[in-house]
C-alpha cells in the first residue's frame, strides 16, 4: 500500500476505503454519502431524466423538442414506460436504502406546513441540535418521491396498456399521472436548486461523497456532533 507522503499526487488508499463508510471523518472531511448511496441516487435521477425527456413531449407540444433528444415521438412513447419501470425499481432500492434515516423527529413533524417550509427557505429555520442526518424537508422530499414513484407506476400501467383497461379508468389514470408529475417536477426543481446554487457545498455530497465540517455544522449540527464528537458552538 502506498502512503500519501511517498506519492503526494495519489489519494491514500486508506482514505479511499474510509470514504466508502458513511458518517466518518476522513482527511478533514465528513463522508455523507458512500458510493452505494450515490449510485442509487444517480440511477433514480438518470431514469427520471429519461422519463422526463420522453414524457414531456407527449404531455404537451410545448416540450415537443425534448422528443428529438430521445429519437422522436414514437421512440418516446416506446421508451417512456421502460424508463418508468427502471425509475420505480431504482426508487424501491432507494426507499429501503434510506428508510432508516427518514423517521421524522418530534420537532420535524410540522414540516408539511407551508409556513415551516417558507421559514426554512428564508434561511430563518434554526437547524435542530437533536436532528439527525437529514432535516424535515429532506425527509418530506424522500417520502414524496416514494409516493410519486408509486403514483407513476399505478397510473402508468393503464396508460401503457390502454386496450386492457376501461376508458373511465384510463381517463382517471391520465389525470392522476399528470398531477403526480406536476407535483414531482416542482419538487425536483426545488431539490436541484437546494442541492446546488442555494446551499453551496451540498452537491459534492452526491458526487465525491464528502462534505466539509463547516457545512455539516451549519446544516446538520446534530449529525455533525454525532460524527465528530464536537459541540456545535466550539468555534469562537
Amino acid at each position: 500500500m502506498s502512503s500519501a507522503s511517498a506519492q503526494p499526487n495519489r489519494v491514500d488508499r486508506a482514505i479511499v476505503v474510509a470514504r466508502d463508510r458513511d458518517n466518518v471523518v476522513v482527511a478533514g472531511e465528513i463522508v455523507r454519502h458512500r458510493r452505494a448511496t450515490r449510485i442509487i441516487h444517480w440511477t433514480v435521477a438518470l431514469t427520471f431524466l429519461i422519463g422526463l425527456l420522453s414524457g414531456m413531449p407527449i404531455w404537451t407540444p410545448l416540450f415537443g423538442w425534448m422528443a428529438y433528444l430521445v429519437g422522436g415521438m414514437e421512440v418516446a412513447r416506446v421508451i417512456h414506460p421502460y424508463a418508468g419501470v427502471a425509475f420505480v425499481i431504482a426508487s424501491a432500492f432507494q426507499f429501503f436504502h434510506w428508510l432508516g434515516d427518514m423517521h421524522f423527529a418530534s420537532d420535524e413533524k410540522d414540516w408539511w406546513r407551508p409556513s415551516r417550509m417558507a421559514r426554512y427557505m428564508r434561511w430563518e429555520d434554526e437547524a435542530s441540535e437533536e436532528g439527525g442526518k437529514y432535516n424535515g424537508g429532506q425527509k418530506l422530499f424522500f417520502w414524496a418521491v416514494c409516493l410519486g414513484a408509486v403514483g407513476f407506476l399505478v397510473t402508468g400501467i393503464p396508460m401503457w396498456f390502454p386496450l386492457r383497461f376501461p376508458a373511465l379508468l384510463r381517463e382517471i389514470a391520465i389525470i392522476l399521472h399528470d398531477v403526480t408529475f406536476i407535483c414531482f417536477l416542482i419538487g425536483v426543481i426545488l431539490h436541484i436548486y437546494l442541492g446546488t446554487a442555494a446551499e453551496p457545498g451540498t452537491f459534492r455530497a452526491m458526487t465525491r461523497g464528502t462534505v466539509t465540517r463547516s457545512w455539516a455544522r451549519l446544516h446538520h449540527p446534530g449529525w455533525f456532533r454525532k460524527v465528530t464528537g464536537e459541540s456545535r458552538d466550539k468555534r469562537t
Binding site: A27, I189, P200, T212, R213, S214
Partner: peptide, 23 residues
Amino acid sequence: VFGHYATYGPKEPPEGDGVGEGR
C-alpha cells in the same frame, strides 16, 4: 427559484467556520 436566489442568496457557513480544525 431564480427569484429566491436573488432575494435570499445562498445559505453558506459563516466565514472562517471550520478553518484550522484538525484533520
